[in-house]
Design a binder for these strands. Structure first.
Length: 450
RNA sequence: GGUCUGAUGGCCGAGCGGUUAGGCAGAGGUCUGCAAAACCUCGUACAGCGGUUCGAUUCCGCUUCAGACCUCCA
């Protein structure tokens, strides 16, 4: 654990040395999916990014509690309309219970994550199971004077908050800019200011998901769950908060405001944001209608896909780019990833076929050293992969008889390589029999959906 | 309109003030009975225009283009 991990902190916009509050313990919170639709490539990017961070922190000797939520209450689509809940809308359309939908897509998400080799987090709390905690949080915000009630709904008073603290620190905007960016002023809104956001919404009669509260029968606001659940499981102060860049504003900004309003100080110390996956240069997303679901990738059942792509190919593809860069999807890039992965995994297997010699012509300690150096540099997975490929070449050379390696070094090489590839990067050999059973239900589902 | 980010060889994608990123594709070669695999060799990429500098793809300015956020979104 003597690594000097450096992370890019969105809050400071700089690279900072990672120093946990209470080493060797690390608290990590990442925004999980809203389970109202099929998980797509974008979900994979976020999950894999923080899965590798989780794995690398553990590899570095930290004891990590990783919390990743499931949003099953849904978020408001538009605060200008009646407060439609995404999950409720879909439920009505399909004549299902909201929780049935949430459960279905949660299962789907879990299957996809298993296939992708994404480890289960330490805790995976659901928003619907933490209504009480969210109500308590609202009360605290009320007590500190940063909330107001109107007609059964409770709103966060951004202006009052901004006078004492700085609203917009994370996304780098001022309140004035936020005002300027507000598009339509919804006439008879209950909010005092357009940038105020809901902490509790009174449920309209047609709204299916609702819970009792001191203010009304209703449901919690968009940003509350993460504040409530991170505090509950990681404490008022924890180390890292992650999520997609698209969540930076308003979601994470509001989270910070809620935490500070309730406790007087920041909750998370390091904010990390993974960038988007693009398709022909445009963000891939459900709302844009250009998202390809993970099961479609596994089955090859989307019109834009020339073939099926295995979960490990997807993982390798994502790892080949730095998490803060956009990553452009294409069949060509995926096919390149598929072949690269194959070569890497073959080389790992080749280690076992190398015959040891009396002395080594290679320095096996360089592998781990160089790998760590890359990972310590803001989780630079593409460089880490390049290090791996240097060793792919060395392994093949040794196997071909160009150079020699001692028995001890060979054992070290094997162990290190397997640890890095398998335990830290989470890549497994797809030849393994277990793989088919992991994606079979997903493939079936994707094919049925056609 | 406001805020911000990016533009790297055929594709994907790192990086840095002067030295090979890496993967895939392509060319030549070695090995092999053929093939495959593997290995060796090969590409004078850094949007354009200025500036700073002994030297810039890397720093600064401008231009063009692209994208993200400002509404739910990984």
């Amino acid at each position: 654990m003597k690594s000097k991990l450096v992370l890019h902190n969105t809050l400071s916009r700089t690279r900072e040395e990672f120093v946990p509050y209470d080493p060797p313990f690390v608290g990590l919170y990442v925004c999980g999916p809203t389970v109202y639709g099929e998980p797509h490539l974008g979900h994979a990017r976020s999950a894999i990014t923080f899965d590798v961070l989780f794995r690398y922190l553990k590899y570095s000797g930290y004891r990590v509690r990783y919390v990743r939520n499931i949003t099953d209450v849904g978020h408001l689509q538009n605060d200008a309309d009646e407060g439609e809940d995404k999950i409720a809308v879909k439920a009505r359309l399909e004549q299902l219970e909201p929780m049935e939908i949430a459960h279905y897509y949660t299962e789907s998400y879990h299957r996809a994550m298993d296939a992708l080799g994404v480890l289960s987090p330490s805790i995976e709390p659901r928003a619907s199971g933490h209504i009480i905690e969210q109500i308590e949080l609202i009360k605290r915000i009320f007590e500190h004077g940063f909330a107001y009630e109107n007609n059964g709904s409770v709103y966060f008073d951004v202006e009052a908050y901004d006078r004492r603290h700085n609203y917009g620190r994370l996304s780098g905007r001022t309140l004035d800019e936020t005002v300027a960016g507000t598009r339509t002023l919804d006439g008879q809104d209950e909010k005092r200011a357009p940038y105020d956001f809901a902490l509790w919404k009174k449920a309209a009669p047609e709204h299916i998901m609702h819970w009792p509260s001191p203010w009304s029968e209703g449901f919690p606001g968009w940003h509350l769950e993460c504040s409530a659940m991170s505090t509950k499981y990681l404490g008022e102060r924890f180390d890292i908060h992650g999520g997609g860049m698209d969540l930076m504003f308003p979601h994470h900004e509001c989270e910070i405001a809620q935490s500070v309003a309730a406790s007087g100080h920041d909750a998370a110390r390091y904010w990390m944001h993974n960038n988007m996956i693009t398709m022909e240069g445009r963000k891939m997303g459900k709302s844009l209608g250009n998202a390809i679901s993970l099961s479609e990738f596994f089955a090859g059942s989307h019109p834009l896909l020339q073939q099926s792509y295995s979960p490990m190919t997807i993982r390798f593809f994502i790892l080949q780019a730095h998490y803060r860069s956009t990553l452009d999807f294409s069949n060509e890039a995926l096919q390149a990833a598929e072949k690269g992965l194959d070569r890497l995994m073959k080389a790992v297997a080749t280690i076992g076929k190398i015959k040891p010699a009396a002395a080594s012509t290679v320095d096996v300690t360089a592998l781990e050293r160089d790998f760590r150096e890359a990972m310590d540099d803001d989780i630079n997975s593409p460089v880490a992969m390049a290090v791996l490929f240097e060793w792919v070449k060395v392994i093949n050379q040794l196997h071909d008889g160009a150079g020699t390696i001692s028995a001890a070094d060979l054992a070290t090489l094997k162990q290190t390589m397997e640890q890095i590839v398998g335990d830290v990067l989470g890549l497994r050999d797809e030849g393994a029999a277990s793989n088919d059973s992991l994606i079979a239900p997903l493939v079936e589902m994707a094919l049925e959906a056609r």
